[in-house]
């Protein structure tokens, strides 16, 4: 609710006040980080197993897949769109990569699987941006037909992963850190740089913030939209490969409901569903929040059914608190 103030007034502010303002700004933007830290503290008090190296690595590895999906979803939601098809893409990319690995070297097969994910996303993007169909409808459709294709490719059976290289993507370590975690960090680093420092990244914020204004300032709206769905598809492809590698098998029914976890992570991270406002690091911590929560509850021996109830309620509560906080500021 602030009204513009002349520069002169602003300069009078002491640096102390500025620092306070900056911390406030940081907390406002990164509230989810604070929440994750608090949650970790809580679980380390309640369970002696929580704060062990093994458990931390375990949480990070479990989170990696949903975090990578959330990264792609962040791009889409920043434009004001939504992508419901990523769960199906996880399955399709997984079965494609594994079946490719039957007749080509594993690295190529993996790239092939991710490419299939990217193509599926590209088709979503074209349908949304060129044909101007609502994203929720387009991806609701592709969620179903991509799953169908995954069943057709495998005939409904799981495909076993034979290659050790392929398996190492899901189960290997680089030094003390699991490979999926390294991939997750790389994905977020790239996403952060793209969104913050490239023309394409800024265009995404502009298209999401005001599509009409973006068009009137000569921004390539159509191609920006096509690209965000493609990126979402690529991220889902990566997640699909990791999942197959971790389970040593690709299954056509893998990844069911993953899209909803990703959306929850993005929204928990502070990205607005309306578009134009958001922050990629927030999505990472949104995903970590979900990961830590289910890990902690499991350590505390809370039954799975109850975990679902708690998780759902916590999501609603977190978003409510966030809304109240934003209104105040």
């Amino acid at each position: 609710m602030s009204v513009s103030q002349p520069e002169v007034n602003q300069k009078k502010n002491s640096t102390g006040a500025n620092l306070k303002q900056n911390i406030g700004k940081f907390l406002n933007k990164m509230g989810i980080i604070v929440v994750v830290v608090l949650l970790c503290l809580l679980f380390s008090v309640l369970s002696s197993d929580f704060l062990t190296w093994n458990n931390i690595v375990n949480v990070a590895r479990q989170t990696s897949i949903s975090a990578i999906l959330a990264a792609g979803m962040t791009f889409v939601i920043l434009t004001g769109g939504i992508d419901l098809s990523i769960g199906a893409i996880v399955a399709l990319a997984g079965v494609c990569a594994v079946s490719f690995s039957g007749f080509m070297p594993a690295p190529l097969a993996i790239i092939g699987g991710i490419t299939v994910g990217g193509l599926a996303g590209y088709v979503n993007g074209i349908l949304t941006s060129v044909s101007r169909l609502p994203a929720i409808i387009v991806t609701l459709g592709s969620m179903t037909y991509l799953r169908g294709i995954a069943y057709v490719v495998t005939g409904g059976y799981p495909l076993m992963v034979e290659s050790n290289f392929f398996k190492s993507i899901g189960t290997g370590y680089l030094g003390p850190i699991p490979v999926p975690v390294i991939i997750m960090i790389a994905v977020f680093a790239i996403a952060h740089v793209v969104l913050k420092y490239t023309s394409f990244g800024r265009n995404i914020y502009m298209v999401g913030g005001n599509e009409e204004a973006a068009r009137l300032t000569g921004i390539k709206v159509t191609s920006s939209l096509t690209w965000v769905y493609t990126i979402s598809g690529i991220c889902a492809g990566i997640a699909g490969v990791i999942l197959a590698a971790r389970l040593f098998s690709a299954q056509p029914n893998a990844g069911m409901g993953y899209e909803l976890d990703a959306i929850a992570a993005v929204v928990l991270g502070g990205t607005s569903l309306v578009g134009g406002v958001g922050f990629i690091v927030g999505s990472l911590f949104g995903a970590l929040f979900m990961g830590v929560l289910s890990n902690g509850l499991t350590l505390l021996n809370v039954p799975y059914y109850w975990q679902l109830i708690i998780k759902g309620l916590v999501i609603v509560l977190a978003i409510y608190i966030d809304r109240v906080r934003r209104k105040k500021s």
Binding site: Y205, M206, G209, N210, E212, A213, A214, L216, G276
Partner: peptide, 9 residues
Amino acid sequence: KDQSLFLDL
């Protein structure tokens, strides 16, 4: 508001 501004930027 509708055609020019990116309000949140």
